[in-house]
């Protein structure tokens, strides 16, 4: 049964994987190309990496992006864990449907709408309350926290759903207060979800172009905004080098995260 299908099946699956990886691999290879003409191969070279690290605009944008991503991911994990916990462990309460709608909608909301609506909110708030005064780092952090929160909530929710509730019940029977219960039992159990939620938020924030373009102010360009303005004019070897670095960093981080989570799962279950 399985063998008969396997020829066309593995053929098209193989095509799918080539489709997924070929562009990335060619980008990595061409980042080491010596020629300025991106597709004319003229020998190996790391000169684009050198010129990348001398580009102050890119370095500053990268620093801003990392800072925003770290803060937003942390805030999103705190708020998203609360939301996920509330939705899966707190029974019924008024407004639950509303909250679960607000948690899932940002996942599929087109970025242009999220960006525009948050910008208009910030402008309206500024003229009403004088806060936030101007736009920049702070407003990007709020915007990123909001959409990352939704991802964390979903990850936490599914982890909680797969957890054995008897452990929590046992702790309750033994007299643990809700707060003790949460910090001593639930939190360690959902820790893998929190780690992957944080990493997911971090990469999503680091990657966002559209929302940041709407809500940032003058002089606060994140890395994707700088990349986009350069890339619009065409393919450049410097951006190839930058892309290679970012892809490698993320790949290493993801593989490390998978290994860590596997080890943890071995001990907990």
């Amino acid at each position: 049964m399985i063998k008969r299908q396997s020829f066309w099946l593995s053929g098209s699956a193989l095509f799918g994987f080539i489709f997924l990886y070929a562009p990335i691999i060619s980008l990595i290879i061409y980042s080491f190309n010596e020629s300025k003409l991106v597709t004319v191969w003229s020998g190996w070279s790391i000169k684009w990496y050198v010129s990348l690290f001398q580009n102050e605009q890119i370095i500053n944008a990268a620093l801003l992006s990392f800072k925003v991503a770290a803060i937003s991911a942390t805030l999103a994990v705190i708020l998203g864990t609360m939301a996920g916990f509330v939705l899966s462990r707190m029974g019924r309460f008024r407004g639950k449907t509303l909250l679960s709608g607000w948690v899932t909608a940002p996942l599929v909301m087109p970025d242009v709408i999220t960006g525009l609506s948050l910008l208009l909110l910030f402008v309206a708030m500024e003229s009403m309350f004088g806060w936030p005064a101007g736009r920049g780092e702070g407003t990007i952090i709020i915007a990123h926290t909001t959409f990352c929160l939704a991802y964390v909530a979903v990850v936490v929710q599914s982890r909680l759903a797969s957890l054995d509730e008897t452990l929590e019940e046992a702790a309750m029977d033994l007299g643990a207060k809700p707060s003790t219960l949460f910090f001593l039992i639930t939190l360690p159990l959902i820790a893998p979800a929190l780690i992957s939620g944080w990493l997911l938020s971090f990469t999503l924030s680091l990657d966002d172009l559209v929302i940041a373009s709407f809500v940032s102010g003058p002089g606060n360009s994140t890395l994707p905004m700088v990349i986009f303005s350069k890339v619009r004019l065409g393919v450049t070897p410097e951006i190839n080098a930058l892309a290679t670095l970012m892809i490698l960093v993320v790949a290493v981080a993801v593989v490390a995260a998978i290994v860590i989570m596997r080890k943890q799962n071995k001990y907990t279950s």
Binding site: F17, L20, Y21, A22, P23, I24, S26, L27, Y30, L37, V38, T39, V40, L199, L200, T203, L206, D207, L209, P224, I227, F228, V231, G234, V235, I239, N240, A243, M246, I247, V250, A251, V254, V255, I258
Partner: peptide, 26 residues
Amino acid sequence: ALVILPFWTSFLLRVYAWMGFLKKNG
């Protein structure tokens, strides 16, 4: 993991990778 891995890498840069793939002398 192979399916999910590209999803973690920058969306903008993955779109950019296709520019180098599809262009006239790509």
